[in-house]
Design a protein around this nucleic acid. Sequence first.
DNA 1: AAACCGATTGACTGGTCAGTCAACCAGGAG
DNA 2: CTCCTGGTTGACTGACCAGTCAATCGGTTT
Lengths: 202, 202
Amino acid sequence: MASKASAPAVDKRRQILDAAVRVFARQGFYATRVSDIADEAGVAYGLVYHYFKSKDEVLNELFSERWSLLLAAIEEADREGSDPRAKLEAVAGFIVDSYRHDPELMKVIIVEVTRAANSFGRTHLAEIRRAYDSIAKIVADGQEAGVFRRDVDANFASMAFYGAVEQLLSGWIFAVIPAADSDFDQAKTLLVTTICDGLEAR
Amino acid sequence: MASKASAPAVDKRRQILDAAVRVFARQGFYATRVSDIADEAGVAYGLVYHYFKSKDEVLNELFSERWSLLLAAIEEADREGSDPRAKLEAVAGFIVDSYRHDPELMKVIIVEVTRAANSFGRTHLAEIRRAYDSIAKIVADGQEAGVFRRDVDANFASMAFYGAVEQLLSGWIFAVIPAADSDFDQAKTLLVTTICDGLEAR
DNA sequence: AAACCGATTGACTGGTCAGTCAACCAGGAG
DNA sequence: CTCCTGGTTGACTGACCAGTCAATCGGTTT
């Protein structure tokens, strides 16, 4: 019987996925050769095809793995948050922390999938949409409760909020804005302040 | 002497650029063959290389052409606007109108350049940044004038604002939010309302 | 009418790469 | 010790395509 001890010393499949993240982040999906992934993972070329149907499937797997966590986090924020604002802060916090924890993976997901309207973005549109919808629901509930104004459509607000978050990550990815630990912490509250309270002095 | 009448009946270079927009928008840059562009433009394959050094240069040209208009528009908004809020509304308005007027071109610019951190986004980073900076300046001036709160960093606010705008276009591109004429008009004011006044009821 | 010249054509080439596959290896079972 | 199985290897191939280039065309100049 195959005991745990006799399992392969390392999970090659995982090894390939992790290597793919690094290479995709560095070169982009299209500029990445399957051989780059294999080299980075320290396995033979053919092994990539033992675990994955195609190069596309590697990226699909990376995306779905991570995005399902995001969806779960948004739904948990909605369930557990005390008020709409706290819920939005939890969502922003999760995304920012995801980036802080694994910037390469988040870069790949955003650049190659979420913002790629012509390739993987289309493929995963349904999953991506689910995130927008969940955020819109938070806003709509806030309106229902009288906390949020009703003259801003909830779907519209959801896009604006998510767009602001993603653009921040984009700024970090492009290195156009500073990305120190303090910046990440500030970002969470600043994001919610901006969207909920607005820029105008009062 | 070459009179205007004897000039080529149609500007083939322009014809190629316009065709490229349509093809890039439909298939994405990477999935587009140079022959697709030539076919769409109704010219021979080789002519594309008569007018452009490479396939990349076609996209570069499309981007730079349009982006310089955007930069000019932002700076004009800054110069002519009566107050910070009006300036931001002018910026949002210009971008939204750009999309309304030529959605395919804006799709290409956003999807293939602005959001492509690994390829053309890097190439044009300086130009893209200039837009962020100009918007940040509008915000900073607003803070200076006491109209905008000072506890939200101007660069941060600029990213949030631009991100919200771009995500809206993205929503239209992906067809996740409705894109009727009335939606475009509403978007302009809603965008500014959200960012300046915030979502909270008051 | 002959030379000229830039615009236009499209067949061709050289290089690249995703995906295949036959062989190899390790270790468990009989 | 031999067979079997599933993980692992990497050379190979078929397709694809960006970019080249020699030939052609049409209008101008002399």
